[in-house]
């Protein structure tokens, strides 16, 4: 049962977003070209198709749940929560990186991001103890700074792409 909970929630999120989209579609204007289809027609058709197909998918999940033997579902909840938390932390770090990129400058924000991601994965990893960190702190900081500088010159000189200020 538990393995289907996530998918059911995901389907409900899709349906909720699709219903919200239907409200937005009602506000789309236009329809002056003389065609039987207005700018709102295609999105409306797609949104309804998404809702119907997602409901079909939900129905097939419930059929599977009814058929499956709940006693074989033995995965502990903790084992599914930790990876979820890791993904969430990585996303938060990405958002902070994006927020800092322009105000703090490229080198500082990139170096901090590299250190933060590696530290997160190291600390949360169940198989690596704190004493056996693959990249001791100072080495890691030096690597992060050197990598950031190298990439800056590669992007700006090698590929002529503009990055935020140093």
């Amino acid at each position: 049962m538990q393995r289907y909970v996530g998918e059911v929630i995901w389907c409900l999120v899709i349906i909720a977003l699709a219903i919200a989209a239907l409200y937005q579609i009602a506000e789309i204007g236009g329809g002056y070209s003389g065609s039987i289809l207005t700018p709102a027609s295609f999105p409306e058709l797609i949104t309804w198709a998404i809702i119907v197909l997602t409901l079909l998918n939900l129905a097939s999940i419930f059929r599977k749940v009814l058929r499956s033997d709940s006693s074989t579902d033995s995965e502990p909840l903790s084992s599914s929560v930790l990876p979820f938390v890791t993904g969430l932390i990585l996303l938060v770090e990405l958002v902070i990186y994006a927020l800092l990129l322009e105000p703090a400058g490229y080198i500082l924000s990139t170096s901090l991001f590299i250190v933060a991601v590696i530290a997160t994965l190291t600390f949360l990893s169940t198989q690596v103890s704190l004493s056996e960190l693959a990249y001791p702190a100072i080495k890691l900081v030096v690597f992060a700074v050197l990598f950031s500088v190298a990439v800056f010159y590669l992007f700006s000189l090698g590929f002529e792409l503009v990055l935020p200020t140093l």
Partner: peptide
């Protein structure tokens, strides 16, 4: 090490997307 690789890939993702038209919204 995979954790190092993941960090570097994410940096390339952010920089690549930012470089399209220097718009943080793209990130």
């Amino acid at each position: 090490p995979r954790k190092l690789l993941m960090a570097l890939i994410l940096v390339f993702c952010v920089l690549g997307v930012y470089a399209v038209d220097n718009d943080i919204f793209n990130i």
